Simulated assay, not measured.
Amino acid sequence: MKSDETEPRQPGVAPTAPNPVQPPPAGRAEGPSGPSTLVDASGRTDVTKALMGQATYRSLGEQRLSPAEERFERARRTTGLWLAPLVAAVFLALPLDMAPSQQTLAGILLGVIVLWVTEPVPIPVGGLIGVAAIVVFGVVPPDDALSPFGSPTIFMFIGAFILAQAMLKHGVARRFAFFVLSLPGVGRSTFRLIVAFGVITCLLSAFVSNTTTVAMLLPTALGLLTVIAKMLQDRGMVAPGFDPARLRVGAALVLMLAYGAGVGGLLTASAAVVVPIIIPIAAAAQVDPFVPALAATFAASFGFMLPVSTPQNAIAYGSGVVPITTMIRSGFTFDVIGALLIILGLPLMVALTGIGG
């Protein structure tokens, strides 16, 4: 039988109480794999600061991951270190009837895609590795390789992210978010909210460019995520030190923003990369290159899996709330649907219009 008496103590020494669970100190909360989100003195996540401080690439120690997730991420990133150069080398060794520079460009592109998917290095670094490779292997001179970095689209991206951060900091995005939530029937469920946001995006993209639409609405999407995250926090539906960037509704909102704007467009930045590769391949196969190039253009419009597929995807990924694995998983289904539409619809369009004949 256990005694109810406390342990004897020395005179002048305060009794010790059972060690309660203390909230994490102000700073960055500790997750299973290390610090992840900003928290206040009470241990609650500061949602606004956490979302403003998100980066597109975080090391394993900067994420809140379960042991299984950490093992998967570690294996994925390690695999990319050897798989990317292997894929590029195998393609370069294939006996294809292509100009050497074209085959080299295609091989480098495949290697960079592997880097983007597996993320052994941040995606921007992977892209720069590709730029350096096409110069080193003599595909293009340095000036031609670096000139796209002066594109107005790049500065539009920069402006969009600056605007988004400013609107978050000063509460403007929150006001827009409340307006969207106040629309009849929208605030009743997250599904209706996501659908309504997609409809708004599609309507706007019918009158202005897709990239501009996403740049304009990104702050509102982040504002909606902020409101939802704070609501979940106030109702005790999330852990005190949770990471708002990992909420599924946030990824769904931002992806809907990119997909809704992307469906309405046909020319994208990726078409400019893919079409020059498709045309010589078709010519080498003695096929009229017009139809394959047209298919590649349509396919580029249905590029949902990678940040570099479309400018809209790049902006969505740059928000920091859409991990590359989430973008790949969600985009795969839409890519399959797009491929089926192209395979079934393009021959019919060619037959009806007589183009490429």
Rank of each mutant, 00 (worst) to 15 (best):
S59F: 00
G130T: 05
A284F: 06
V199E: 13
P67L: 09
A88C: 04
A284P: 02
L105S: 15
Q10S: 12
A93L: 11
F304A: 13
V47I: 03
L253H: 12
A88W: 06
P292D: 01
D144E: 03
T268I: 01
E69D: 11
L94M: 01
Q233N: 04
P311N: 05
M167A: 13
V121F: 12
C202R: 14
I328K: 15
T6K: 15
V180L: 02
F207N: 08
F207G: 03
G264S: 05
V140R: 15
I343H: 13
G250C: 05
I108N: 15
F155E: 05
A282D: 12
S270E: 09
A99S: 10
G171Q: 08
L253Q: 13
I113L: 06
I113A: 14
D335C: 09
M327E: 00
F149G: 06
R71E: 03
L94A: 05
V135Q: 13
L306M: 07
V112R: 15
Q165L: 01
A173W: 08
A173G: 01
P148L: 06
V321R: 13
V87A: 00
L294H: 10
G250I: 07
A41P: 08
V180C: 11
P11V: 00
L255S: 13
S301Y: 01
F302W: 11
F302R: 15
E7Q: 14
V136N: 14
L306V: 04
E30T: 00
V214P: 10
L247S: 06
R188P: 04
G357T: 07
A206T: 09
V172R: 09
G354W: 08
Q10R: 10
Y57S: 07
G241K: 15
I281R: 15
L266M: 12
L348G: 10
W116Q: 11
P100W: 13
A29M: 11
L181G: 01
V227D: 10
V117A: 14
L217Y: 09
L81Q: 15
M231F: 10
I228M: 00
A351I: 00
F197Y: 03
T333D: 08
G303I: 06
G250H: 02
F91C: 10
V47E: 07
G236M: 02
A17C: 08
L266K: 14
L109G: 10
L218Q: 11
V273T: 09
L110N: 07
A314L: 03
V274R: 14
V90M: 09
G43E: 10
G127P: 01
D288E: 06
I324K: 15
S59V: 01
